[in-house]
């Protein structure tokens, strides 16, 4: 269970350029939930994921994972429960290191010591895992990751983010920078990997694609100006379509504008 309570994050706080990125954000996520997060640019979606991952620290509020407060825990300590895939395929892998080294790094996430990072059992394991991706990566484990295509690298990052059995999987528009074909492939891999862990993985996926947002997962959250403005799941969610979502979005935004105008006179 992931519980986010009253989370608030400012950028450039106490300066004339102050931005309220996350505004009193609340969310309760059950184990097995696959949430798609939508919202316009600057709504705070990526900031939210960064706060959960620990790459950023909030100004207020709290994040609990299975009852344990992790709000201010450093990113590298949370990494043992959290798998991440970034929008930019270049961010998730180390280009000058080999495929097997990248995979080994992602598997061992705490107390790295003087044991050898790779051995033949690990290599065998990586080979079998990579062959499931059907990209032919298992043929040359010593190949440098920088020589792979964006799609291949993103597929690898997907694997690296799930192979170690995390509690939370954070996907930040992870198909946005890929061509349609690779993007379809990565989505398929995403579904398969999430399906494998059905019932005990929390997945948060940011997307700009409304169709994706409704097709994938079991719950959709809409964000605007750092708030959770719309949250739909279950049977209710199955009934709605993209048009409803878009209408809902503009309606909720308009309401806020009206409220703003009333406040500002």
């Amino acid at each position: 269970m992931l519980v986010i309570k009253g989370l608030t994050k400012y950028f450039a706080k106490n300066t004339p350029h102050e931005v309220l990125a996350i505004n009193n954000f609340n969310l309760r996520v059950k184990k097995g939930d696959f949430i798609t997060i939508i919202g316009s640019n600057g709504a705070g979606k990526s900031t939210l994921l960064n706060l959960i991952a620990g790459a950023l620290q909030p100004d207020q509020g709290e994040i609990r994972l299975d009852g344990k407060i992790i709000t201010y825990q450093p990113e590298y300590q949370r990494a043992r429960w959290i798998g991440r895939v970034f929008q930019n395929p270049l961010l998730g892998t180390a280009p000058y290191m080999s495929i097997e080294e990248n995979l080994a790094l992602s598997l061992k996430r705490e107390r790295r010591g003087l044991r050898l990072g790779l051995n033949k059992y690990l290599r065998e394991y990586f080979r079998s895992k990579l062959s499931e991706l059907e990209l032919g990566l298992e043929k040359d484990l010593a190949k440098k990751v920088g020589l792979l295509s964006g799609g291949q690298r993103q597929a690898m990052t997907m694997m690296m983010a799930t192979m170690f059995k995390p509690k939370i999987l954070l996907l930040d528009e992870h198909t946005a920078a890929l061509d349609p074909e690779s993007s379809k492939k990565i989505l398929k891999i995403t579904e398969e990997l999430v399906e494998e862990r059905k019932g005990d993985l929390i997945t948060l996926m940011v997307t700009h694609n409304m169709k994706q947002a409704l097709e994938l997962g079991n719950r959709t959250v809409m964000m605007d100006r750092g708030c959770n403005i719309f949250d739909i799941q279950g049977e209710e969610r199955k009934k709605i379509d993209i048009n409803y979502l878009l209408k809902q979005f503009s309606k909720l935004r308009k309401q806020e504008y009206i409220e703003d105008r009333m406040v500002l006179g």
Binding site: E75, A94, Y96, L105, R109, G113, L114, R115, L116
Partner: peptide, 22 residues
């Protein structure tokens, strides 16, 4: 070694290795 690989990764992609728990 595990720690040696983490050092190489720090020079190669710091953001990534931090998100991988180093």
């Amino acid at each position: 070694t595990e720690i040696g690989l983490a050092i190489i990764a720090t020079g190669d992609n710091e953001q990534m290795i931090r998100s991988l728990g180093a």
